[in-house]
Amino acid sequence: MFIIVILIYSVVFLYDFLPLYKQKEWKEFIVNACLGLVSFTIALLLSFNLKIPSPEAPIREIITSIFGK
């Protein structure tokens, strides 16, 4: 499974980053790379069947602690 993830992500990265690199738009490149790395990591972890904690849980905790219910 993770092979597919790596494969797809490498294609996406090639498609997305190559023009940025060529045009020397470094700011875009860095922002994009950060986002890309985060999503790649999550996808990779998911492909290893790891459970990623949902960001929804803490929000729910906070809200229920404030408003009850």
């Binding site: 494969l7 797809i8 294609v11 996406v12 498609y15």
Partner: peptide, 19 residues
């Protein structure tokens, strides 16, 4: 850049179909 998009699409479709 369009060929890349097409390749991507084909890859995803084939991936879905085959795997």
């Amino acid at each position: 850049m369009k060929p890349f998009k097409i390749i991507l699409l084909v890859l995803i479709i084939m991936g879905n179909l085959l795997l």
